[in-house]
Write a protein that binds this DNA or RNA. Structure first.
Lengths: 220, 220, 220, 220
DNA sequence: AATGAATGAGTTTTCATTCAT
DNA sequence: TATGAATGAAAACTCATTCAT
């Protein structure tokens, strides 16, 4: 097997997985993502520059461009990393659901638990330097929305759900999930279970079924 | 047609209050805001530069700074214009509410009707150049959230609402309002009344009380 | 005549020719061209960067980009400036020509005289840092070649020239003009008249009619 | 199909002179030159970077530096390859010349025939991305000019040529050679013989002796 | 008050070259 | 020797802001 040196170009020597070179590449990518998460959380996405990210890294400026084209691409990578991790879990949970209650509660529980564990990412993604709040949904995230709507459609077809407007219902679930998650992360005494219970109760019975507050004295 | 003949006499050349000069000032401000709306909608907030806005204007770059300090300020002005218009209406409606139902339904109805009328602004604010979706909430908007929470607290105090978590409830209402509004604007056959009915039913009785779809055959 | 301030954009206020602003603009453009000529002559076109040109200028870096997009554009401007000046002269001379001799001799004489006067430019355009010699012909220059060919065609039609290959003849004239001009500029004792006589004699009677050297011994 | 079975025996692994290793080296060098020719022709010399050349190659960037120091060196190699091939032929032809006519006609004939055969190279060297035309003469090429001048001097000394200005005559021959070659390559119905005849006639008797066009009806 | 060119700090980006594998 | 990612100096370019007119 005499392979001519002067041929391929695409992947000349696959750099066998696990080699030191390969290792460094994976590590550098993660280094950049880590730095970006930190900087986004500090300065907010809008104010962050590629330089800022590089500065938060031991790497050279040129190295950044071996991995990403722009801060947008880094942002998307962070977002997508999250979306790609949580989406299969959500689908799986919902697939197992035998009732509305299971469908709704497992969706919220999974989501809030994930957010609680991944709080750093969530903050990085959400925060902005000025008191402005930002939310950016990448295609990968939006795909998660579509999956939810599909699951709702299927649940309707299976008579698990009544024949409601799947688009609106998806929107309502998404809206509640993200906004409540934010309160959970920003607020003080909350935990994912409480958030999930709240959201589930809302969807299962409306305001009337919402859990009552422990301390009736309200908070600022 | 601003005549203002009375004050006009003594100073033929210099600026007179309410005169053409004054007119131009108001007009220029509006010209900039209009251009900004267009450019934000085209490029997305992040990618837009002050230059872009000026370019979309017949004005000179220096002139911009007579009206705004930065694109942030322009953005806020656009957002605030909306927020400052809708917030008093919402407060008013909620103040009149004698029951949960009135509180919830008037909130959603007012919001969705406003969005439907102000669709252009809504889209401008939401859209981004790539397929990424963005939402930015300025302090003025966030203040509206706080007002809602205050109104909820008050309603709880007045025993109109059960003693639920006001923070979470506010978040849930906000989340549903924005996400459903988006579906309404982006979708085809929807109108503010349907959106309001949907959201109100959700909050009044949960999923079980949601209106059933007219055509049970689902949509893509 | 009340002109609305908020209208035009293209040329809002023409900045009346001769105004100080207008003056500065013209001057800055010339400053950049001057600097570029110098730097090209020093470093050669290939090695020159936009930075180099800016550095040779009292202007700010951004200012450069108000006038030119790149060093290529500057180069072309220099070349074009020359081409646009000499071309009308050449056409004029050739239009007056009543015979081959007049046609040929006026062409060369005009060209060599121009080069001699404009030697700085010529060197700037020609020189390169390494011992490599460069010649770049911009569209504006190439247009001059086409004009020459047209004039030849016309002279053939008018029976001033025999029916030779106009394309080749044009090429021969151009080649001799540029190469001999270079020897004239680089060499020591030559003047435009001698160069013109040489070239004209060559075209009028071939090698046999070329002027004999004064000092038969000579070497470069 | 390089077998080389004889030397192969004693050292199965290490490099053997003339072996596969040696082969690859020569091949790689040629691969780079080939790629460079292509890229220079596409982007023009100035715009081409070493990266561009490597990219057009199946080789790694580091490998490039085992063969050349810079794009300049590659360019020179291409140019020199040509120059070093044609120069001895030209000298030889001119050395045999017994008369002006032989001297001139053999020079042009050899040159134009070479260009016609080597058209690809010629175009690569000449062309630029924009409509600008470039000509770069490397030292190796310029050396060819000097050789021509020396041969002229010698011909003058041998009384084959009249005592004309050798520098100018060399320039004239070079100028005509390159420019007419370009027309030949770019134009349509021309062949090296016609080009050579044209140039030779010009130098032997001036415009009056140039061959007449076959179709007197002119060309665009 | 409007204009728009100049400014120059700062950002993005490229790319020749090195060097561990 | 080949590889190709890392490097970082330098180049390219942008753009908010100023300020003379």
């Amino acid at each position: 097997m005499v392979t001519d040196t002067v041929t391929a170009k695409p992947e000349p020597r696959p750099a066998r997985a696990g080699g030191k070179r390969e290792q460094t590449k994976i590590q550098n990518r993660e280094t950049i993502l880590e730095a970006a998460r930190k900087v986004f959380a500090e300065l907010g996405y809008g104010a962050t520059t590629v330089r800022d990210i590089i500065r938060a890294t031991p790497l050279a400026s040129g190295t950044f461009y071996n991995y990403f084209q722009s801060k947008e691409e880094v942002y998307q990578a962070i977002r997508d990393e999250v979306a790609l991790e949580i989406r299969p879990r959500l689908r799986e949970e919902r697939a197992k659901a035998k009732s509305i209650d299971e469908f709704i509660s497992s969706t919220f529980r999974t989501f809030f638990e994930f957010v609680a564990r991944d709080e750093g990412n969530f903050r990085a993604i959400r925060h902005n330097a000025d008191s402005t709040r930002v939310r950016m949904d990448t295609p990968e995230v939006l795909a998660g929305f579509t999956e939810l709507r599909e699951d709702i459609e299927k649940a309707i077809a299976d008579a698990i759900f009544p024949p409601v407007d799947a688009d609106f219902l998806m929107a309502a679930i998404v809206g509640v999930a993200f906004e409540v998650a934010e309160r959970m992360v920003i607020g003080d005494n909350h935990n994912p279970s409480e958030a999930a219970e709240f959201a589930t109760a809302l969807f299962m019975g409306g305001v009337h079924k919402l859990p009552h507050r422990k301390n009736a004295a309200g908070t600022a």
